[in-house]
């Protein structure tokens, strides 16, 4: 059943090109499929690099940091392109950053255990 409250009174025809707005105020199809495909290939390429790095051990003790850095770059690509944060308004970007901050809480309190586990009290 249709819901008039969530159905826009006047439908705006999508403009050709970029930065079109749908009826719900959601930005749609802001990036071309070609660009998204390139980003997809980059993310998959970084994934392959990460797997290769974990098996080769070429970076020694720096492997973990390199892998985390690659993961961060992948997440950034996903956020900026697939989640359209590049075109998001301030509230959307702030929300995304808040979730990163939230993950920071997990990591910081989590590391409070791992980094002090071998210290002896007293």
């Amino acid at each position: 059943m249709a819901n008039p409250h969530t159905t826009p009174a006047t439908a705006t025809p999508p403009a050709a090109g970029h930065d079109t707005h749908g009826g719900h105020g959601v930005i749609g199809h802001v990036d071309s499929p070609g660009l998204l495909f390139v980003v997809f290939l980059v993310v998959i390429g970084l994934f392959a690099a990460n797997v290769a790095m974990s098996t080769s051990g070429a970076l020694g003790k720096y492997t973990l940091f390199a892998q985390l850095a690659i993961g961060a770059v992948q997440a950034t690509f996903v956020g900026l392109y697939f989640m359209h944060l590049r075109h998001g308004d301030k509230v959307v970007v702030l929300t995304a950053l808040a979730s990163v901050f939230w993950m920071g809480i997990l990591f910081v309190l989590f590391m409070s255990d791992y980094m002090t586990r071998n210290r002896v009290m007293g």
């Binding site: 939230w102 809480i105 309190l109 409070s112 255990d113 791992y114 002090t116 586990r117 210290r119 009290m121």
Partner: peptide
């Protein structure tokens, strides 16, 4: 509520310092 999960783990082998914090 997000800052105190490790009180479920006081006897699971987490560090003393972390246990105090949680």
């Amino acid at each position: 509520g997000f800052l105190l999960w490790a009180h479920h783990m006081f006897v699971a082998g987490i560090s003393f310092y972390s246990a105090l914090l949680f």
